[in-house]
Design a protein around this nucleic acid. Structure first.
Lengths: 339, 339
DNA sequence: ATCCCCTCATGAAACGATTCAAAAATGTGG
DNA sequence: CCACATTTTTGAATCGTTTCATGAGGGGAT
């Protein structure tokens, strides 16, 4: 019941192992008659190539790892989906590693990936403390592309989205609809994305003389949105529109507003960020800023293969994409029409 | 710039490769002084073990693969999260493969996993046509556990949830609240889970003399819920409660009801299935049937390791879990209180 | 001094594929 | 039938570990 190897196939087909290898890797170099005899033996014995041996000889695996902060986050699943086709059509194998925003988990994954001699990796580092490990991999000749984080801070290829512009889009959309008091909900501000989105929002508010109130939250989840809304509910000068740092926060806010009988968008408009599937499916479909997620993944994969192909003479590229605003029911009302 | 191997470390430390290997694998068998010299050399040279070579020698990799129908589905991410701790604490490495409900993708993954000589796998097969491949792996001595599908149809260990009971729970909850006309929304009925949930629901309706209307949909997504609701809206004898085959369908239904001004739960109650995070976060928090997802994963991993440990003399076990109903606002109203 | 036991270190033999120089088989033209 | 070109096949070396029988060195007991 031991696994069958090329040697067994060779014996069964009455040829040498070299020939069996050729049948598998360069069939055109083997005579028709021999080839079919070998293939028959493979079929007969149920032979399956041993990838470890292949890799050992090749010195590299054909795996491209994608290290994400949270596999359950639709943003990352879309990035992965965007990267897959290119990688697979190049004969690669994709493996997804979830760091769960935990540096230790991330490190464990990187250790293993290095031992596996992966072909390359696409990574969204947990934080700056990941830098030394990233440099280590890079120093061991493992090419990598940074996804949506750390661009500029490290000498690597990267893909990212212009979050300042995204913040501007959201704010401009609300100002356009006639809102004069806007609240920004999100945090912690140590996350670059959050800071950038707020920065863009602030720019527009200052340019247009719109009042901006900032609710800094501990995380980007439902509870954050709920709590922020509850904190502002009873007030006289309540903002008439919310810009939430991501869709989860926005959905939490929507829930709190709904449960307190505040009508969206009539009494309070909401704009989210990320445009996850649940945004369009919310009770009141959410307006949201959409990032070109799968394009992000596709481009990251492309950069990786470019780097692999170009080898030493490679110069790093940093690609920045522009997000787009998707307007839906949660901002459908034009306040100026009421005046 | 070539990678450094044990040979290099051995030379640098002035010992044989066998000793280096011992330092890494059985440090207690190496003299203190030698060990620290070797470790210093490893550090100095930045040596990283080559996993391919290790695996080749060992004959097996330490990877456990989890093959799921959809990585973006919270059900599966929780199953994976449940399985991980056990696998990792046993020194294993988890890799997640997404079949995307596509038999061809599933097959490609299985081929690769077999070439990689994985330690074992947890799999939710796409459909019955996967059976022959599963048998093939199994025949090649790769132990596997079926997750939430195919139990009984194949001679393997499995974990599953009692969906008939889940259907009963949902229906009983609605009947209990006084509803006399219930609609089931979900499909296609070829999916065993859908059929079972409906069966349980039907049982209760028949036992209690409750009217049941079935809307069979093409898939389990937002659109299915929306369309089903729109199809029943204008009618006189509209059902007063909906049991949706999963939460996505339920959220779609909630959206359609909200947009047509039908109040939930006052004019129409909803029960979903799966209790994904978004259920609790919906504008009207959704009642839902919760499956013990991470326990499912944990148990699956446990069964796998049992099978590996027991070897030949192993007898397969099929574990079935009971779901539980989580009552929230979407069914908060007791109709009998109004009479 | 001899013998035995113990602790450590060694080096060669796997593991299974790929590669490549060289040998063998085949075909072609004279 | 031979010399030569071309197509196929061969077999050994190699990748980096782990394993294990063997040996070297050091005490302690006799």
């Amino acid at each position: 019941m031991t696994t069958t190897s090329m040697k067994d196939v060779a014996r069964a087909a009455g040829v040498s192992v070299g020939t069996v290898s050729n049948v598998l890797n360069r069939p055109e170099a083997v005579a028709e008659e021999t080839r079919s005899r070998v293939l028959a033996a493979i079929e007969e014995l149920g032979y399956v190539r041993n990838d470890s041996a292949r890799q050992l000889r090749a010195g590299r695996s054909r795996t491209v790892a994608v290290v994400v902060l949270d596999v359950a986050n639709p943003f990352f699943t879309d990035v992965v989906r965007g990267a897959e086709p290119l990688i697979e059509s190049a004969g690669g194998v994709v493996t997804v590693c979830d760091s769960g925003e935990d540096v230790r988990r991330e490190r464990r994954h990187l250790e293993i990936l290095e031992e596996q001699r992966v072909l390359g990796l696409l990574i969204t580092p947990v934080d700056d403390s990941s830098a030394s490990w990233i440099e280590r991999l890079s120093g061991h000749d493992i090419p990598l592309v940074l996804v949506d984080r750390g661009a500029g801070r490290h000498p690597h290829c990267s893909v990212a989205v212009d979050d300042v512009h995204g913040g501007r889009l959201a704010a401009a959309h609300l100002v356009e609809a006639g809102h004069e008091r806007i609240a920004f909900i999100g945090g912690p501000s140590s996350i670059p994305q959050v800071a950038d989105r707020l920065a863009g929002c602030r720019q527009v508010c200052e340019e247009t003389g719109t009042a901006l109130e900032v609710f800094t939250t501990a995380g980007l989840n439902f509870a954050a949105g709920r709590e922020a809304v509850e904190a502002m509910l009873g007030r006289e000068d309540r903002p008439t529109a919310l810009f939430c740092a991501n869709d989860l926060v926005a959905l939490g806010a929507l829930q709190a507003l709904t449960m307190h009988g505040v009508k969206v968008p009539h009494e309070c408009a909401i704009v989210g960020y990320d445009d996850i599937d649940f945004a369009a499916a919310a009770a009141v479909p959410l307006s949201s800023v959409r990032q070109p997620r799968s394009q992000l993944g596709r481009t990251a994969a492309q950069l990786l293969f470019d780097e692999i192909a170009e080898g030493e003479g490679h110069t790093h590229r940093n690609v920045v994409f522009q997000p787009e605003l998707i307007a839906r029911a949660s901002t459908a009302l034009d306040l100026r029409a009421l005046m």
